[in-house]
Design a protein around this nucleic acid. Structure first.
Length: 101
DNA sequence: AAGGTGACTCTGC
DNA sequence: CGCAGAGCCACCT
């Protein structure tokens, strides 16, 4: 993946408003990378743990967290989101309401 | 160089 | 709502 695209993704993710979320595929599209939702996931995976990027505002298209329910990562992400006012129902959120745009 | 993998997504039952 | 199957595609072996 090109550096240019990585930069665009970083910028986009950093631009997600507090209290809103974006799907992997959505970000890929906005960055000019159609059909590369997985690339977004890879990028987030390689982030340093102390990154300032709001990686937790990225969920899958179903409005669910892409980690095994109950895992440490899962809980960490969920807490961040709830702290911003996002409400979980049955381990998922209402994308109609929270999706960025 | 061929095959496996996965922070994905869509469709259908 | 849940599970399965099938695309999809950059990376790693």
């Amino acid at each position: 993946m090109q550096d240019e695209h990585k930069q665009r993704l970083f910028t986009l993710i950093g631009a997600i408003p507090k209290g809103k979320v974006a799907a992997y595929g959505q970000l890929a599209n906005l960055a000019g990378l159609p059909r590369q939702a997985r690339a977004v996931g890879r990028l987030l995976k390689e982030l340093p743990k102390g990154s300032a990027l709001p990686w937790y505002r990225v969920v899958n298209s179903q409005g669910k967290i892409s980690f095994p329910c109950g895992s440490k990562k899962y809980i960490e992400q969920k807490e961040h989101l709830e702290l911003e006012g996002i409400v979980f129902i049955k381990d998922k959120i209402n994308m109609r309401i929270y999706q960025w745009d």
